[in-house]
Write a protein that binds this DNA or RNA. Structure first.
Lengths: 165, 165
DNA sequence: CAGGAATAGTTGAACGTTCAATACCGTTCA
DNA sequence: TGAACGGTATTGAACGTTCAACTATTCCTG
C-alpha cells in the first residue's frame, strides 16, 4: 500500500466515534451479561443458536459458523459449557467424524434466565438512544458493510490455516 | 427485569446484522493488522495515542483512558511493548507514584509501517461500502449511542473494583 | 477400490484480558 | 504529625482466544 487513501477529517472523526461507541457498547453488554446472567456473550451466543435449532441440536461446525466462531474456540467453549451441564455432545449418527451439540434443559434454563436482562440492556444502550430512522439506517449500514466484507472472498474465520498433514 | 421490553422483528434483525457486521469487521481489521503490521489492534491503539501526545509521552493512566483500556490491561500490554522496544517507561518527575510511557523511535517506526495498511483496510471494509450520507448517519448514530452510554454514570472500565488493601 | 485430498473436531501452548490483591505515594484533616 | 483515605501502577492466577499440530473419517479420482 504505497499510497494509501488517507481518511479525511470527517472520516477520521466518524471512525473514532464508531470505534469508541461499539467498544464501550459491547463491553457494557458483556459486563451486564456476566453480572446478571452468569455467562460471557460468547456463551450466550452458543446457547441462543442451539435454542433456535431443531431439537436444540446442531453439528459443531454448523454451530461454529452461526456463532461466527472458529472451530477451536467453539471446542474449548463447548468443553466448558459441558462442564456446567448446559450442553451435551454426542456422536453424529450420519457422520462418524461429527459431533452433535445439544442444549440441555439446564442450559435452556440458564438462557431463559439471562435473556430478559440482556435484551433489556440492548434496548437501553443501543435502541433507546436512537430514533426510528437511525435504527433503520443502522440496519442498512450494517448490511452494506456485511456485503463489502463478503465480496472479498469468504474467509472462514481463523483456525484451520495451513496445518493438516 | 420482570417484564422486559422485547425486541420487535425489525429491531431483532437490525441487532443481529449490526452484531455480525461489527464482529466480522473488527476481526478482519485485526487480522490484517497482525499480518501486515505485526501487531494486534490493542497495541496499535497504544502507539497511536502516544504518537499524538506531546513528546510522544503520556502517564499510564491517561494512556489507559484514551485507549479505553483498564489499567491492568495496559500494564500487561506495556510490558510486552517495552520488550519489543516500542515504548519505554520512566518515572514521572511530578508524582512519584506515576510512570510516563514514551514512544520510542522504533515504536514510531512500527506505527508508521503499520498505519497505511490499516487505514486502507478501514477504508476498504467500512467506508467504501457506504454512501456519504450513510457515513454521516453512522457518525450521528455512534454519537447518540455514546451519549446514551455516558448518561448511565461513567463506569471506569473494569479493573480496580473492590480490592484495596 | 486404493490412495490422496478434504472435512470434522480436538488439543496444548502461547498470547491477551480480567479479577483481586498488593505496594507505594499523595492528600486531607484532626 | 500521623492515620485514614484515595489514586497510581503492577502482579499472578484464572479465564478465553488463537495458532499450529494431530486424529479420525469421508470424499474424490483414477
Amino acid at each position: 500500500m504505497a499510497q494509501p487513501r488517507w481518511l479525511d477529517d470527517e472520516e477520521q472523526r466518524v471512525w473514532r466515534t464508531f470505534l469508541t461507541a461499539t467498544q464501550l457498547l459491547f463491553e457494557r453488554l458483556d459486563r451486564a451479561l456476566v453480572r446478571d446472567g452468569g455467562m460471557p456473550h460468547a456463551y450466550y451466543e452458543i446457547l441462543v443458536r442451539l435454542s433456535e435449532a431443531p431439537d436444540r441440536t446442531l453439528r459443531m461446525s454448523q454451530l461454529a459458523q452461526r456463532c461466527l466462531s472458529s472451530r477451536s474456540r467453539l471446542s474449548h467453549a463447548a468443553a466448558r459449557l459441558e462442564e456446567r451441564g448446559w450442553i451435551r455432545r454426542q456422536a453424529c449418527p450420519t457422520d462418524r467424524r461429527g459431533l452433535l451439540a445439544v442444549l440441555t434443559d439446564d442450559g435452556f434454563a440458564a438462557l431463559a434466565a439471562a435473556a430478559p436482562g440482556h435484551v433489556e440492556a440492548v434496548r437501553t444502550y443501543l435502541f433507546d438512544p436512537l430514533t426510528a430512522a437511525q435504527v433503520r439506517a443502522l440496519g442498512r449500514i450494517s448490511e452494506a458493510v456485511l456485503v463489502g466484507l463478503g465480496e472479498d472472498e469468504a474467509v472462514p474465520l481463523g483456525d484451520d490455516a495451513p496445518g493438516g498433514r
